[in-house]
Computed example of a mutant assay.
Amino acid sequence: MILQNQLYTISDHKTEGGKDIFTVALNPECFIYKAHFPGNPITPGVCIVQTCAELLGEITGKKMEIIAAKDIKFLNVLSPLTTATVDFAFSAVASDGDNTTAKISVTDGNEVFATVAFTCSAH
């Protein structure tokens, strides 16, 4: 895992209504936040997408590599100072044997920070 236990830690994982939901705690002391941006840390979009891939790996039990991004939207700023924990809700997870597709919503329950739809391959 590239970001797990550095940028975030998994606080909870549950299955609810056919969705896998991971609650993650953001680490404001991570080196990424010190660079992006000093004094006003913001989670980079690429880190949100990478976290989605790492969490999909938790679901599949395989290390996942993104091979296609279908739809990625960043809707609100995600800062560890204002949002200590965030949920990554996976829906429509499907595998054809080689590739796995998923749709993910990143939210704190009130605000949607990002939506991601992508295809990953195990490697």
Rank of each mutant, 00 (worst) to 15 (best):
M1Y: 03
I2L: 14
L3P: 06
N5M: 01
L7I: 14
L7N: 10
Y8R: 04
Y8H: 07
T9W: 02
I10C: 08
I10P: 12
T15H: 10
E16Q: 14
E16Y: 08
E16M: 11
G18E: 13
D20C: 08
D20V: 11
D20H: 15
I21K: 08
I21P: 12
A25W: 00
L26S: 11
P28A: 06
P28T: 07
E29D: 15
E29W: 02
E29A: 14
F31W: 11
I32P: 03
Y33I: 01
Y33F: 15
Y33H: 10
A35E: 09
H36G: 12
F37I: 05
F37V: 03
P38C: 11
P38M: 09
G39I: 06
G39R: 05
N40F: 12
I42K: 02
I42T: 07
I42E: 04
G45C: 03
V46C: 13
C47P: 05
I48F: 07
I48N: 09
V49W: 02
V49M: 12
V49Q: 08
T51N: 05
C52A: 15
C52N: 04
E54R: 00
L55T: 05
L56S: 04
G57L: 03
E58A: 10
T60S: 14
G61C: 05
K63L: 11
K63D: 14
K63Y: 02
M64E: 12
M64G: 06
M64N: 09
A68Y: 05
A69G: 15
D71R: 12
I72T: 13
K73T: 03
K73N: 12
F74C: 10
N76L: 04
N76G: 01
V77G: 02
S79M: 11
P80T: 05
P80H: 10
L81V: 10
L81P: 00
T82F: 09
A84D: 08
T85R: 11
T85Q: 14
V86M: 05
V86Y: 06
V86N: 03
D87M: 13
A89N: 05
F90C: 05
S91C: 07
V93F: 04
V93L: 01
V93H: 00
A94R: 15
A94E: 14
A94N: 14
D96S: 05
D96K: 02
D96C: 00
G97P: 01
D98E: 14
D98G: 04
N99W: 00
T101A: 06
A102Q: 03
A102D: 03
K103L: 00
I104E: 00
I104G: 01
S105D: 07
T107D: 02
D108M: 07
D108K: 08
G109W: 07
G109H: 01
G109N: 03
V112K: 09
V112L: 13
F113T: 06
T115G: 06
T115E: 14
T115D: 08
T115P: 06
T115M: 12
V116P: 07
V116H: 06
F118D: 07
F118Q: 13
T119I: 12
T119N: 03
C120R: 09
S121F: 10
H123M: 11
H123L: 13
H123R: 12
